[in-house]
C-alpha cells in the first residue's frame, strides 16, 4: 500500500468535476475523493460502480413480508385459532385482510432498518469510528482528491497543476 499521497484540493464542485475528468483522461489513478456534499456526476466521472444497496433493500423488504406472513399465520391460525367477534380465524386466506396492515409495516421495517445497517457497515460508519477525511475542511467547503504517489511525483504534480487547483499537498503516511 502506498504511504505517500498527493492531495489535490479544490474550492468548487464544478472545478473538481472538471479536474477529475481531466485526470482520469490522463490516466491518473485516483484513490478517493472527499467532498462536503454529494457532487452529482462525480461517481460516473470516477467510474464508480452503481451501488446495489437498493437491491439489498428490496430483498430485506421481501424477508420482512415473508416474516410477517409466517408470524401471523403461526400465531393466529396454527398455534391458537380463536373466534373473535364472530370472525373465526381458522384459515389464513379468510383472515388475511386483517393482516395486511402489519404485513406492510413489517416490510417497511425490515427493508428500511436492514438497508441502513448495511449502509453503515459497508461505509464503515458507527459510533466511536474515527473520521478519515485527510483535512477537516472537506466537510465545509473544500474538495479533496487523493492520489497515491510512488516515484512519479513530478509527473503527477505537473498534471494536477493543469487543473483549476486551489492547493496541492504531499502527505506521507508514517504509520503504515
Amino acid at each position: 500500500m502506498a504511504n505517500k499521497f498527493l492531495h489535490a484540493i479544490y474550492d468548487d464542485d464544478d472545478k473538481l468535476l472538471d479536474a477529475v475528468k481531466f485526470l482520469k483522461k490522463e490516466g491518473v489513478y485516483i484513490e478517493d475523493v472527499f467532498t462536503p456534499f454529494p457532487v452529482h456526476g462525480l461517481d460516473k466521472a470516477l467510474g464508480l460502480e452503481p451501488t446495489r444497496i437498493s437491491i439489498a433493500g428490496f430483498i430485506y423488504g421481501c424477508i420482512g413480508f415473508a416474516f410477517a406472513i409466517f408470524m401471523m399465520n403461526y400465531i393466529m391460525i396454527v398455534d391458537w385459532p380463536q373466534n373473535i367477534g364472530g370472525k373465526p380465524s381458522f384459515s389464513f386466506i379468510e383472515n388475511m385482510p386483517a393482516f395486511v396492515p402489519i404485513m406492510f409495516e413489517l416490510t417497511v421495517f425490515f427493508s428500511a432498518h436492514l438497508m441502513v445497517i448495511t449502509f453503515y457497515l459497508r461505509s464503515r460508519l458507527w459510533p466511536f469510528k474515527e473520521a478519515e477525511n485527510p483535512i477537516p475542511e472537506t466537510t465545509d467547503d473544500k474538495f479533496l482528491v487523493q492520489i497515491p504517489v510512488s516515484d512519479n511525483e513530478k509527473e503527477l504534480k505537473s498534471k494536477v497543476k493543469k487543473t483549476d487547483i486551489f492547493k496541492i499537498d504531499i502527505v506521507e503516511n508514517k504509520d503504515e
Binding site: P38, L42, D43, V116, S123, R124, K129, A131, E132
Partner: peptide, 29 residues
C-alpha cells in the same frame, strides 16, 4: 460530535450510497 457523526468522512462512494439510501427511504417513508 465525533461520536454522533459515526466517523463520516464524505468519500465519493459514501455519498453515492447516501443518496441512494435517502431516495429509497423516502420511497418507503
Amino acid at each position: 460530535y465525533s461520536l454522533v457523526s459515526f466517523g463520516w468522512s464524505g468519500r465519493a462512494k459514501d455519498w453515492q450510497r447516501f443518496e441512494e439510501i435517502s431516495l429509497v427511504l423516502a420511497g418507503l417513508a
